[in-house]
Design a protein around this nucleic acid. Structure first.
Length: 556
RNA sequence: UGCUUCGUGGUGUAAUUGGCAACACGUCUGACUCUGGAUCAGAAGAGUCCAGGUUCGAGCCCUGGCGAAGCAACCA
């Protein structure tokens, strides 16, 4: 049992205190103006997870109060991503726009109670009167218009009689409040744009602050969980709910820290910028922290949830090390991903004493972590490919792989000894390596236990197929690209975040792999079949490399 | 010279009627291994932003500082 986070503790106390008859009902309220990212996954896990933990429910509610920014395309991707993560809202899919009539009525009610007024000033004038955080604002000349005039003007605003920006409806609260959000906030503005759900029914649309708490109230939400930047909105949230509610029930807003990850950016605006400027291939580019990007990269929902559980929920604005995310996905894929042989950067290896016309089928275990995943057979012959990296002409002592005169194990096959190599003298490149094999050392054979320093993966040159492999790395080369004063985050894009390898050699069993299938390329990393693959021309995305201690040794 | 919130190993999170600062990631050893993976064993690393106070005893309570973030969209 993991201990309850501070929000779950509050919920538990509310239940004990009998608030809202002990009900727990949360909501996840995305704005359909972009794709969900891993920060949303943190909110989703809290919203759906805590409801589930206390026997409550969680609604999906699209916060679609601004028709300029929102589109149906995003609604579909958001639903797909939530389901992918493993959560379900059953029949409770709502939209803020479902409540436009009720919100409008409430606005009328506030006007009638003398708590809202129409302001004819421009946004610049209103902003100028708002004051600053350290200086009180001044009241609008329209603040004390009479109720009938307000009613008439607001009605005409919605009838389309006025231009956008010419009038707004404001709540009448306190222009001297130390909280800027209480200084007569705008609650309705004129927007003459077709809404993706209500069409042209409305000419006025409520602001976020005028919609969120009331929608919570209409839906019977008990705990409205959001990120820290809404902390200063809470007095306004409560002010509005207080004027709307008729009984004891009331929703409660609680704020938690948003998710920040090192070496990436998390704001929707910045992600959108990367997409628009084509600095990435799209919202689902495998380097993006979007859920669709992570999915395409090869992340599993289980890995994402495990990561989110490990970072917790607090009020401290943290930047989480992406290494923790990478650990979570390795941990998950280690148990799930079948092992296969793929040579990324091939060099030909010829076994000179192996009969040229002979082919053996080697039985290879699919996953040493899970026997139930069985085994497969991999063809072996006298011509193989191994990694260029796995051979050195003059290897240092700590190098456990192949070099002149050295012995290594070919995994699942034989021990071989290097007898020579062919080097292109003009380029310095090794073109072919020559070895002899010891027939007694076949895996499971009489001399199979002989110890050698290294084990290499390989593929048969006569059976291998070509594939494209995309090596993804961190999108940025600064741990906090968005947090650098006087620098645009795009300055820190990592020019090596994608390397494409075109003639990688894959073992024959992989030819039937389907998009999203995940594998461990033995000794290299975890990879996932890309959706752009077509039969006979596979593309693999690197999810994350294996922990590689040789790489560390080599750097020293 | 406002309001709100936050300061615990490198990173993140615990320590819930005050009781030896714990866990995970990362780092570094070593063992094992037909993946330089995984697994196993171990180590280093904070005395809790600072200064006072209450107390037998303070990360936790009190006072005063310091530092950081958010807030001045007809965005959410």
């Amino acid at each position: 049992m993991t201990p309850l986070n501070f929000i779950e503790q509050i919920i538990q106390e509310d239940i004990r205190a009998g608030k809202n008859n002990g009900r727990v009902h949360t909501r996840f309220p995305p704005e359909p103006n972009g794709y969900l990212h891993i920060g949303h996954a943190k909110a989703i896990y809290l919203d759906f997870g805590s409801a589930e933990k206390f026997g409550g429910k969680c609604n999906l509610r699209f916060d679609d109060t601004n028709p300029i920014k929102e589109e149906t395309e995003f609604v579909e991707s958001i639903k797909e991503d939530i389901h992918w993560l493993g959560f379900d809202w059953e029949d409770r899919e709502f939209h803020a726009s479902d409540y436009f009539d009720k919100l409008y009525e409430f606005a009328i009610d506030l006007i009638k109670r003398g708590l809202a007024y129409v302001d004819d000033q421009s946004s610049e004038e209103i902003a100028a009167q708002k004051g600053t955080p350290t200086k009180a604002g001044i009241e609008s000349p329209y603040r004390n218009r009479d109720i009938e005039e307000n009613l008439d003007l607001f009605t005409r605003m919605n009838n389309g009689e006025f231009d956008e920006g010419s009038h707004v409806l404001r709540a009448k609260i306190d222009m001297a409040s130390p909280n800027m959000h209480m200084r007569d906030p705008v609650i309705y503005r004129i927007i003459k744009r077709e809404h993706h759900r209500t069409g042209n029914k409305w000419q006025v649309y409520p602001m976020y602050d005028f919609a969120h708490g009331q929608c919570d109230y209409f839906e019977g939400i008990t705990h409205s969980l959001c990120t820290l930047e809404f902390e200063v909105h809470r007095p306004l949230y409560d002010w509005l709910v207080d004027r709307l509610k008729t009984g004891d029930y009331r929703p409660r807003q609680i704020e938690f820290n948003r998710l920040n990850l090192t070496y990436t950016v998390m704001s929707k605006r910045k992600l959108q910028e990367l997409v628009m400027l084509k600095l990435v291939s799209g919202w689902d580019d495998p380097r993006m922290p979007t859920l669709s990007g992570l999915r395409r990269r090869g992340y599993t929902p289980e890995a994402i949830i495990k990561f989110i559980r490990s970072i917790g929920y607090t009020k401290f604005e943290a930047i989480n090390d992406v290494a923790l995310l990478e650990h979570a996905v390795r941990d998950d894929l280690n148990l799930k991903a079948p092992r296969v042989f793929v040579v990324l950067d091939p060099v030909k290896l010829v076994i000179t004493n192996y009969p040229e016309d002979r082919i053996e089928e080697m039985e290879i275990i699919n996953n040493p972590e899970d026997e139930s995943m069985g085994s497969r057979s991999v063809p072996f012959c006298s011509e193989l490919y191994i990694e260029k990296d796995d051979f050195m002409e003059n290897p240092p002592g700590k190098y456990f792989r192949l070099g002149p005169g050295r012995e290594v194990r070919l995994k699942g096959a034989y021990i071989i000894k290097c007898t020579g190599f062919n080097k292109n003298e003009s380029t310095g490149e090794i073109e072919e390596i020559y070895c002899t094999y010891d027939p007694e050392t076949r895996s499971g054979g009489p001399a199979a236990n002989r110890r050698v320093k290294g084990t290499l993966h390989w593929v048969s040159a006569r059976h291998a197929e070509d594939a494209e492999v995309r090596l993804y790395d961190r999108l940025f080369n600064h741990h906090d690209p968005a947090g650098q004063k006087n620098h645009d985050f795009k300055e820190f894009l990592n020019p090596e975040s994608l390397k494409i390898l075109n003639f990688c050699k894959i073992e024959p069993s992989l030819s039937e792999a389907k998009p999203l299938d995940k594998f461990q390329f033995q000794r290299i990393g975890y990879f996932c079949v890309d959706k752009d693959s077509i039969p006979g021309s596979l593309i693999f995305n690197r999810t994350v490399p294996l922990r590689d201690t040789w790489e560390k040794v080599a750097k020293k």
